[in-house]
């Protein structure tokens, strides 16, 4: 335990100290936040229209006017990436957020056990066996198409691991003697669930949520690439990659650059997630 860690009293504080001592993780967190904030904020300002075609400037390499070059219709790739990022992050955060419902299910299954556990676990197994791309196609058919409604399919795909994880964690925690001690001293079940159980499973769950987020980005772009993505005038990263593929020989940067951004995003999220896991794991020891 480092000197600084000792001066911090709360577990959350110590986890934070350990996390920020991990230089790679801090850099990755910075990179991710930079991309995220750029996509959320910059499109609010009057930048170049991502849909405006410029027939004079087709497939340009990155230059002073077009920082990331232009695509086959002469549209500004940087502007498209920024606008596309907004929608991509919207889809991913919504999906990852909705998947938190799995946490509720998992905790309920673990805490109540018995029949409730059996019903939730079998239901979860059923959900886990749904082919996600088929579900996405189905959702695109039922709901207004081309607007990113496949985020619900992604949420469904992210849920089962979270249910299993939280159920197992709860079972593990309930086995701990301090739960027995709390019961012996007359602490109510509600307080035990809300206090002891939730607090003690929060570390691994937070890590899982980070993993879910990077999974969501990957799945989202894959779906966009496969053509399940959004329609004009909306734009999203997977669609940009798909369009870049059309000119992969003439202007390879049009696919390389978007892929690089996605790669950096996912990689930095994973590094952050791993660092969080390490920081939390030390606390549990």
């Amino acid at each position: 335990m480092s000197g600084r860690e000792k001066t911090v009293r709360t577990p959350v504080g110590r986890i934070a100290v350990r996390f920020f001592a991990n230089r790679a993780a801090v850099v990755c967190l910075g990179i991710f936040l930079f991309i995220l904030l750029a996509c959320l904020i910059i499109p609010l300002f009057p930048i170049r229209d991502p849909e405006k075609m410029n027939m004079e400037a087709l497939l340009q390499a990155p230059n002073g006017t077009y920082w990331m070059g232009t695509d086959i219709y002469g549209r500004d790739l940087l502007s498209r990436m920024l606008h596309g990022g907004r929608l991509t992050f919207n889809i991913c955060f919504t999906a990852a957020g909705l998947s938190l419902f799995g946490l509720v299910l998992g905790v309920a299954a673990g805490f109540f056990g018995g029949r409730i556990d059996r019903v939730i676990s079998r239901f979860n197994d059923a959900v886990a066996s749904i082919p996600i791309f088929l579900l996405a196609v189905f959702i695109e058919m039922c709901l207004p198409a081309g607007q990113g409604n496949y985020k619900y399919a992604i949420a469904v795909a992210l849920m089962p691991p979270l249910v299993r994880l939280s159920r197992n964690l709860v079972l593990e925690i309930l086995d701990c003697e301090y739960i027995e001690a709390a019961r012996a001293l007359g602490v109510s079940p509600v307080r035990i669930a809300a206090g002891h159980v939730l607090r003690n499973i929060s570390g691994p769950v937070i890590v899982q949520v980070f993993t879910n987020l990077s999974d969501a980005i990957l799945t989202c772009t894959i779906m966009g690439y496969l053509g399940l993505g959004v329609r004009m005038p909306r734009v999203e990263w997977g669609t940009i990659v798909k369009e870049g593929f059309q000119c992969i020989l003439r202007a390879p940067l049009q696919i390389v650059l978007p892929c690089l951004v996605i790669f950096v995003c996912v990689l930095s999220l994973n590094v952050v997630g791993n660092a969080l896991r390490d920081a939390v794991a030390k606390e549990e020891r």
């Binding site: 577990p11 701990c176 003697e177 301090y178 027995e180 001690a181 709390a182 012996a184 206090g195 002891h196 607090r199 003690n200 606390e283 549990e284």
Partner: peptide, 12 residues
């Protein structure tokens, strides 16, 4: 209980 370390919740 026998083992006090196990009986106190580590996160409170």
């Amino acid at each position: 209980f026998q083992d006090p370390m196990q009986c106190l919740d580590p996160s409170f």
